[in-house]
Amino acid sequence: MTIAVLLKQVPDTTARITISGGVVDEAAVGKWSMSPYDEYALEYALQLKESGGADLIAITCGPARASKILTDAAAVGADSLIHVLTEDSGMDSSNVQSLLAAAIGRVGADVVLCGKQAADTNAGSTGPGVASILGFTCVGMVSEVSTDADGFIAMRMGPSGNEKVSVSKPCLFAFDKGSMEMRRPNVRGIMMAKKKAVETLTPSDLGVSLIDSRVSLESHSAPAEKPPGQKFEGASSVPTVVSKLRDEANVI
């Protein structure tokens, strides 16, 4: 069994985001990290590898700085690392999906794990898009996955509670918040990660010709500022508070 895990580097959730000229200023991002849902995918990919003796390949698509998350993945146990190098961060999702699908095809992975959406774009299209190009079964909103006979058992959030589903290869799992956090590396893993080579591939190495973006970004804008909190003191303000809770906050 060959497992692929798709990882994206995004601005850290604690990084300050600034907008300049109508788009997010990437040069001003102080810290880049692995997208949080991808961390769950990686943790469960490691668990599958450990239970089935599989080969685990971590794949990212992005600019040069993104290879850092592959080294992080190697430090916790990914066996090989593929970086699909693209400098165009405005590239639309269908191109990213084609590139990732081609990389997965190249390594012959028959099970793929990824996050349900990336923390920067929140598009949520990568998992289903890659699965549809490859003809893999796609399971979304997954919180756990384990091997079972010759297939897999996944837990996912269904419309009315947890759902347990069974699927067979080839398949793709798109992770929601998983039940287990990604493990912490250790010194041995970190020292081994340093020695693991990252295979860098361009779109043409993968035989993918990029298409013109079908979706183009018009502009980014910061979320509206939260109105300041309101403070009420004394018993006389109870009616005001009650009416605000009912009519403005809609909580009672």
Partner: peptide, 14 residues
């Protein structure tokens, strides 16, 4: 080095 920074991040997380 990158390795030293990875060790830093590991301990910081702990």
């Amino acid at each position: 080095t990158e390795e030293e920074r990875m060790v830093r991040d590991m301990v910081r997380d702990f």
